[in-house]
Write a protein that binds this DNA or RNA. Sequence first.
DNA 1: GATATAGTTCGATAAAAGTCGAATTAAACC
DNA 2: GGTTTAATTCGACTTTTATCGAACTATATC
Lengths: 98, 98
Amino acid sequence: MAEYDHPSLESLTLLGVLRGLADPIRLEIVQHLGSVPEASCTALLGDRPRSSMSHHFQVLRESGLLQTRIQGVQHFNSLRKVDLDERFPGLMDVVLAG
Amino acid sequence: MAEYDHPSLESLTLLGVLRGLADPIRLEIVQHLGSVPEASCTALLGDRPRSSMSHHFQVLRESGLLQTRIQGVQHFNSLRKVDLDERFPGLMDVVLAG
DNA sequence: GATATAGTTCGATAAAAGTCGAATTAAACC
DNA sequence: GGTTTAATTCGACTTTTATCGAACTATATC
């Protein structure tokens, strides 16, 4: 696998981002990523099946909430906080405060 | 019909509110309500069936996003902006700006 | 009381989203 | 090349959510 392509800043929509956040697992992932620079999928796994988590990471990536950097066999996820702050100022602050 | 009971400020959850917002029709309703003091259901109907809209109003009410005042045969909906601003400061500003 | 109006509730259907095991890919390492 | 590790993809299934016509409730008006 080469690399993911992430949606551009301009293509992000409020509805898309809200849909990305509107799931308990994904909200938890996002909030966790608010407190660390980045995290691998495994680090956020808990006791859930990998395939479920992989699905949620995909949704988060496609809605523009996180970006994934591939290093060797690991995928490091981080919040697209700077982008999100520019596009939807204040949103991430509320989400991470909640 | 007597009156609706709306969830208390403390019982609102971020996830619940995000779920309420994560639908195109509901987001549109909320954003519209951001620009008017209140609106009846019919006023926001467009060309959609009443029963569908009634469902969305119920979801919005239960997630704490709006309150409904009954006056005669009409139901007037308004954003719970003050409550939401207190509970999730900044959230509504982003949503209404989007 | 009959009629009109505003909105809800019911119930059936359709569409969307989440779950998760099994198979697969891809890199790393011996 | 074989093995381990990290994560994805596939596909089948379940659950949740949305849609919307038809019947219903409640208020207002004549």
